[in-house]
Write a protein that binds this DNA or RNA. Structure first.
Length: 581
RNA sequence: GCGGCCGUGGUCUAGUCUGGUCUAGGACGUUGGCCUUCCAAGCCAACUACCCGAGUUCAAAUCCCGGCGGCCGCACCA
C-alpha cells in the first residue's frame, strides 16, 4: 500500500474526505469533505488568511460571485485562451491541438482563425494524422470553463469562474476607493472555482470544482521593487528551479531570495517577497523544508496574462513534486483589458512629490470661421481637430499653409493657438498585479500526507496543533464509579469555553486513545480514580503519548495557553508516572 | 479521450480462471451489553457488501456487452 493509498484510506474511514456521489457510482473530479475534513480545510484557510491577509499591510478579503456573465471572460481572455481547438484522428483516435497541428503541417500561423477556417485548411490541404496517416475529423472547441445560462432566456450566457481573480479586477474601482486609494493594495478571496478538466486524476489534486485562495496585490509598476516587508525575509533560503535550469536539464539551486533577485531569477521584489510568505505558510502546515521548492513555469506553460510565474511545489508520495501554489506577475493585463472592454477608467492617480509646471501649446478651434465655412460638417471637424497635437498642427500650418481634418482643408484662420502654463500634479497609470494563488484542496491533502505517521502499528496523524479539527478528547478511564459524570462535566465546560472537544466513553481506554490519534487530536484528558481524590486529571500528548497531571480548576487556562502556542506540552502541570515512561 | 489492469460490508480482503454447496467466508471496525484502574485486552450480541444496467443460462459475485468509478501509461493541463 502506498502512502497515498494509506492517507486516502484513513481520510475515507475517519471522515476527512472522499469521492462525491458514491451512491450513484461517483463522478471523478469532485470530493466531499466530512466532519473532520471540513474543519481541517477551514483551519487551513484561516491560517492562509493569517499569512496572506491579516499580517500584510492594507490587505483585505472580498467575496464575489462564482457565475459571471460572458463579458467578464471575453475581457479577461479566458473565452479565447481557455478554449483549445481539438482535432481527432478518425482511425487511431489520437487527439491533437488543431492549431498546433495545422501550424506544424502547413507552416502557417492560424492564430485567431475560426473553427470553420481551420476545418477548411484541413480539407484543402488534405491533412492526415501524422501518426497513422488516417483521416482527421472535425475541429472542435474544448473550453475548460463550465457554461450556463443566466436566467430563463438563452441569450445571457454565463460561465463558472475558472479562477477567483476576475472578481477582484472587476470590482477594483470601488474597492480601491473604499480602501481610500492607497497602493499597494492586496485584495484576497477564498472561494469555489470550476474547471471542466478533461481527465481529473489522483483524487484531490485535480478537481473539477475546487477552492482557490488568491490575493491580487495591486501596485504601482514603478514601485514594484519597493517592498519594505521583504527586508525581514530576504535571507530566506529557497530551492529554486528556474526555466533555464529546466531547459538545460539541471537540478534546482538553493539560494536566498535576495540573491535570486540580484541574479534576476525572480522578476521583482514583491514577487520575491511572496515566495517567502508562501514558504513560511507551507512550513506551518507541517511540510518539511526539503519537501518545498519553487519552480518557474516554462514560457509555453505560462498563462496568457503572465510575465513570470513561479509555482510552489511540495513533494508528495507517488506523484512527486506537485504544484500547490502559483505566483504570477500578471502585469497590467487584467485591468487594462477590463478598462478597454468595459469602457470604465480604472486607472489610478498618483500625486507627484512636487507638482511640475509645464508650458504647453494648446489649440483652439475658431468656431466663428469653422461654422460658416463647413456648415453641417463643422461639429465633426472640431471634434477631430481637438484630438490632434497642437504643436504638430502648428507645424503643418506653417510649412504647407493648411491642414486636412475630417476631409476638410483648414487654414490658419480656422485655428487659434495659445501658450498655456499647466501644473502637472501627478500621473495616471494602470496598476500592475502580483498574484499568489493557492489550491485549498491540494493543501488539505498535503497536510494530511505530511501529518501521517505510524507508531507501533498504529496511525498517528500529527497535524499541527492549530489545524487539528478536534483539539481535545475527554475520557473517563472506565465507565463506572462516577468517572463519566466528572468527565462529562469537564467536556461541557470546555465546549462552553469555545474549544473544539469531543467526549468518548466507548471501548477500552487504549482503543479510545488510538481513535483520537487517527484523527489527530492533540490532547486527551482522562478522568481517573485519582481525580476523585484530588481533583486532577491527566492530559495526554498525541505525539509522545506522555501524560501530565493538572488540576481541573486550572484546565481551561492551561489549555488556552497551549492552543495559543504560549506553552509547550511539557510545561503543562506536573509529569505523570505511567507504565509508558 | 485512448490502451492495460481493476471494482465484494465502514476499511482491508477470500471467492471469479473451472457458473450451482455463496441464505458470500475472514480480519479489523462500529453499536449495545458484560467486564475493565492508562495505550486498538477479553466475552456475548447486533450491524453492514458482490459498482450500475441489460444479456446468456434451469442457475451469475463468477461468463458476455454497455455505463460509471479507481490505478498505471499516453494525450491534455489556467
Amino acid at each position: 500500500m502506498t502512502l497515498y493509498d494509506k492517507v486516502m484510506e484513513l481520510s475515507k474511514r475517519r471522515g476527512f474526505l472522499w469521492p462525491s456521489f458514491e451512491i450513484y457510482g461517483g463522478t471523478s473530479g469532485f470530493v466531499t469533505y466530512g466532519p473532520y475534513g471540513a474543519i481541517l480545510k477551514l483551519n487551513i484557510e484561516n491560517m492562509w488568511r493569517d499569512f496572506f491577509i491579516y499580517k500584510q499591510e492594507n490587505f483585505i478579503e472580498i467575496e464575489t460571485p462564482i457565475i459571471m456573465p460572458s463579458a467578464v471572460f471575453e475581457a479577461s481572455g479566458h473565452l479565447e485562451h481557455f478554449t483549445d481547438p481539438i482535432i481527432a484522428c478518425l482511425k487511431c483516435e489520437k487527439r491533437y491541438r488543431a492549431d498546433h497541428l495545422i501550424e506544424e503541417l502547413v507552416g502557417v500561423s492560424v492564430e485567431g482563425l475560426a473553427i470553420s477556417e481551420m476545418n477548411k485548411i484541413v480539407k484543402e490541404k488534405d491533412l492526415k494524422c501524422p501518426d497513422c496517416k488516417g483521416d482527421l475529423g472535425e475541429v472542435e472547441l474544448f473550453n475548460l470553463m463550465f457554461k450556463t445560462n443566466i436566467g430563463a432566456y438563452k441569450g445571457d450566457v454565463g460561465y463558472a469562474r475558472p479562477e477567483a481573480a476576475q472578481g477582484m479586477f472587476v470590482e477594483f474601482k470601488r474597492i480601491f476607493n473604499i480602501m481610500r486609494e492607497k497602493l499597494p493594495l492586496g485584495i484576497a478571496q477564498i472561494g469555489k472555482t470550476m474547471r471542466n478538466e478533461i481527465s481529473p486524476r489522483k483524487g484531490v489534486t485535480r478537481l473539477r470544482e475546487f477552492t482557490i485562495m488568491e490575493v491580487e496585490v495591486i501596485l504601482d509598476p514603478e514601485e514594484i521593487n519597493n517592498c519594505p516587508a521583504f527586508e525581514k525575509y530576504k535571507d530566506t533560503d529557497i530551492m529554486l528551479l528556474t526555466a533555464s535550469l529546466q531547459q538545460k536539464g539541471e537540478p534546482p539551486v538553493n539560494i536566498t531570495v535576495e540573491r535570486a533577485l540580484e541574479e534576476r531569477l525572480i522578476d521583482n521584489k514583491w514577487l520575491a517577497y511572496f515566495l517567502t510568505v508562501s514558504k513560511n505558510f507551507v512550513k506551518s502546515l507541517g511540510v518539511a523544508d526539503d519537501k518545498i521548492r519553487f519552480r518557474e513555469q516554462l514560457p509555453h506553460e505560462k498563462a496568457h496574462y503572465s510575465k513570470q510565474t513561479i509555482d510552489l511545489q511540495v513533494y508528495l508520495d507517488g506523484q512527486g513534486w506537485t504544484e500547490i501554489a502559483g505566483h504570477a506577475y500578471r502585469t497590467d493585463w487584467d485591468l487594462s483589458r477590463h478598462i478597454k472592454y468595459s469602457g470604465v477608467d480604472m486607472r489610478v492617480f498618483k500625486k507627484a512629490d512636487t507638482p511640475l509646471t509645464v508650458r504647453k501649446l494648446v489649440l483652439k478651434p475658431s468656431k466663428a470661421t469653422i461654422g460658416p465655412d463647413f456648415q453641417k460638417d463643422a461639429a465633426r471637424v472640431i471634434e477631430e481637430l481637438n484630438k490632434l497635437d497642437a504643436a504638430e498642427v502648428k507645424r503643418q500650418l506653417t510649412t504647407q499653409g493648411f491642414i486636412e481634418v475630417a476631409g476638410k482643408k483648414l487654414t490658419s484662420k480656422h485655428i487659434e493657438f495659445e501658450e498655456r502654463e499647466e501644473v502637472v500634479k501627478g500621473k495616471k497609470f494602470i496598476p500592475h498585479v502580483i498574484e499568489p494563488s493557492y489550491g485549498a484542496d491540494r493543501l488539505v491533502y498535503t497536510t494530511l500526507e505530511h501529518a501521517y505517521s505510524e507508531k507501533e502499528g498504529r496511525i498517528i496523524l500529527k497535524l499541527p496543533v492549530k489545524l487539528a479539527p478536534i483539539q481535545i478528547m475527554v475520557y473517563p478511564l472506565v465507565e463506572r464509579d462516577g468517572l463519566p459524570d466528572v468527565a462529562t462535566q469537564i467536556y461541557r465546560e470546555l465546549l462552553g469555553e469555545g474549544f473544539r472537544v469531543e467526549y468518548d466513553v466507548s471501548g477500552s481506554i487504549g482503543r479510545r486513545y488510538a481513535r483520537a490519534d487517527e484523527i489527530g487530536v492533540p490532547l486527551g484528558i482522562t478522568v481517573d480514580y485519582q481525580t476523585l481524590e484530588d481533583k486532577t486529571v491527566t492530559v495526554r500528548d498525541r505525539d509522545t503519548w506522555r501524560q501530565r497531571r493538572v488540576f481541573i480548576s486550572e484546565l481551561v487556562n492551561i489549555l488556552k495557553q497551549f492552543f495559543e502556542g504560549r506553552i509547550y506540552f511539557n510545561q503543562i502541570g506536573s509529569p505523570v508516572d505511567t507504565n509508558l515512561e
